[in-house]
């Protein structure tokens, strides 16, 4: 039996004194793309940060490929193969595009620098530019490319198309689809419903730090009431 890439059991976490996650339970299966939806402040980003070790889980368990990683430090979790592309993209502006990529290269990754440049030709064109000189879309590509070089066994993307022009959104969605077809499971936080329904196998909706809905792509598309109730985007 293959290991479950990601399983959260009743995870609680705090920012200072505010209780953000109040018992989040979810799973990501092998090869699956799962989205985490919800209003601003529902706890989506905090869920990703808790899984990656940037925020400490106060209670509950996080298991990655059946290994308990609750409370492990962020660098150790990253090394075990869990990559987060954060909402702010985390591009190092003082480093060139190539340096941004180079520091992420890890032996054992399925992706090499050549693969990444082939997949993201725009990054190759701009490899001598500073990270701060890139457009939003290019920064997003760089952030995803960097995560791939890090050898992920699970990829978490936090609002990868936020604030991007429609034509760039299409490009990034196509790239995420390619990553999915390479077999890497993805946990995706996204506000753009069209992007979510296009990419994901399954959806969770978070509200006030709890999972309030779980459904397959088909169930979710058919259920206008849930969209209206939790996302405020009634069809």
């Amino acid at each position: 039996m293959t290991a479950t890439p990601l399983r959260l059991d009743e995870v609680h976490s705090y920012y200072g004194k505010s209780h953000i996650l109040q018992g989040v339970t979810l799973t990501v299966g092998p090869g699956e793309v799962v989205t985490l939806l919800g209003r601003n402040g529902a706890g989506k980003t905090t869920t990703l940060k808790t899984v990656s070790g940037l925020v400490r889980a106060a209670a509950g368990r996080v298991r990655f490929l059946d290994a308990d990683i609750t409370g492990a430090r962020a660098h150790a979790i990253a090394r075990s193969g869990l990559a987060l592309v954060p909402e702010d993209r985390g591009i190092f502006g003082l480093l060139t595009v190539e340096e941004n990529l180079k520091i992420a290269v890890r032996k054992g990754s399925l992706w090499t620098m050549d693969d990444v440049y082939r997949h993201f030709p725009r990054l190759k064109e701009r490899r001598r530019n500073g990270g701060a000189q890139l457009s939003g879309g290019e920064q997003q590509m760089l952030s995803i490319a960097r995560a791939l070089l890090n050898g992920p066994k699970l990829l978490m993307l936090d609002e990868p198309v936020e604030g991007l022009a429609p034509v760039v959104v299409d490009e990034i969605v196509a790239q995420i689809r390619d990553i999915r077809s390479s077999g890497i499971p993805i946990l995706l936080v996204e506000q753009n419903l069209a992007v979510c329904t296009e990419l994901a196998d399954r959806h969770y909706i978070l509200d006030l730090g709890r999972v309030v809905y779980e459904g397959s792509r088909e169930e979710f598309i058919a259920d206008a009431a849930v969209k209206d109730r939790y996302l405020g985007v009634g069809a």
Partner: peptide
């Protein structure tokens, strides 16, 4: 620039 991002890359 960002210690968090450096940690997220495994350092």
């Amino acid at each position: 620039e960002s210690t968090d991002m450096v940690s997220l890359l495994g350092y």
